[in-house]
Design a binder for these strands. Structure first.
Length: 296
DNA sequence: AGTGGCTCCTGGCGGC
DNA sequence: TGCCGCCAGGAGCCAC
């Protein structure tokens, strides 16, 4: 499932290949890939030069100066770079041809991926509902705390909600929560300042590590040049149900949160806050519980 | 408003 | 061996 690190990996692979090239062909083989028709997409894209590539959350943006070509890979979308024409096997959903004869093919077995061509001036409206970009400086601990404040939604659902945070999906949410030692079912609004700082660091570290490893190839992810990612080799919890936690050896558990498979270590990610657990263990040891700071 | 649930889509897999 | 049904999940939509 392409998330922020996978989309960034795709972007980095494509950037040197497409920047400076002019789009001379667009073929739509599956009309459901875009709400816009082939004629409209062609009118918007043909003859335009690629000035740069960007990423916003899990959305890949090709900057064509006055127009933006935007691609979302969703579940199984794959952009495949072909130096020259010619493609074997399954038909792509769309293909873009460049002025030097090279082509970019979009393959997508589950057909959830989408393509847009919008005027550059509509970018703000297009991404209006998208939350903080986690690898930008503006994403601070305070910003995360503000976003979590008062929310009853479980942390797992909060992290994968693109309106709150852009780019985190199932894999990196589970991995970030493990790093932060936070239980996926904890309400986002119940997270204290220290825990929020830990979660912030965990989100940033996990995503950076994902990019460093060129993404996770847990299903079929490969970059446009055909390279697999390596992050799946260092996953701590995702799809490791029943296997021992790499930290404490406890079997990894799987629960469903918001309809999504969620993996965590029940020992490293306790449901209750650490302070409460300390009180519980004091009771178990026969010592009187520490007096509450609030006196109640 | 915030939250949870359903839908789309198809290859892969477990069970019988 | 073959077939059936379930599972995976990003985002959009809908209901409460």
């Amino acid at each position: 499932m392409p998330e922020l690190p996978e989309v960034e990996t795709v972007r980095r692979c494509l950037e040197p290949r497409v920047v400076g090239r002019t789009i001379v062909a667009l073929d739509v083989f599956d009309s459901t890939v875009s709400r816009q028709g082939e004629a409209q997409l062609r009118a918007a894209l043909l003859g335009r030069r690629v000035a740069g590539t960007r990423r916003r959350g899990k959305w890949l943006v090709f900057d064509l100066v006055q127009v933006l070509m935007i691609v979302h890979l969703r579940m199984t979308g794959r952009l495949v770079w072909k130096p020259h024409e010619g493609e074997r096997g399954r038909e792509p959903r769309f293909a873009v041809g460049f002025d030097d004869g090279s082509r970019l093919h979009f393959f997508d077995v589950r057909r959830f991926g989408r393509l847009w061509a919008i005027p550059a001036g509509e970018e703000a409206a297009f991404f209006a509902d998208l939350g903080a970009e986690p690898l930008e400086e503006a994403f601070t601990v305070q910003r995360l705390r503000d976003a979590m404040a008062g929310r009853r939604a479980p942390l797992k659902a909060f992290l994968t909600d693109q309106r709150r945070l852009a780019g985190v999906g199932n894999i990196y949410a589970d991995e970030a929560l493990f790093r932060a030692r936070l239980h996926p079912l904890r309400a986002a609004g119940s997270v204290g300042p220290r825990e929020a700082a830990r979660l912030h660091a965990a989100i940033v570290e996990t995503l950076r590590l994902g990019i460093e490893h060129e993404g996770s190839s847990v299903e079929s992810f490969v970059d446009p040049a055909g390279s697999r990612g390596r992050f799946q080799e260092i996953l701590n919890v995702y799809q490791r149900t029943g296997q021992p936690c790499r930290v404490c050896g406890t079997p990894i558990r799987r629960v469903v949160v918001g309809g999504r498979g969620t993996h965590f270590c029940p020992c490293c990610q306790p449901r209750r806050a650490a302070r409460l657990r300390t009180v519980a263990s004091r009771v178990r040891e026969g010592a009187p519980p520490a007096p509450s700071r609030r006196g109640r």
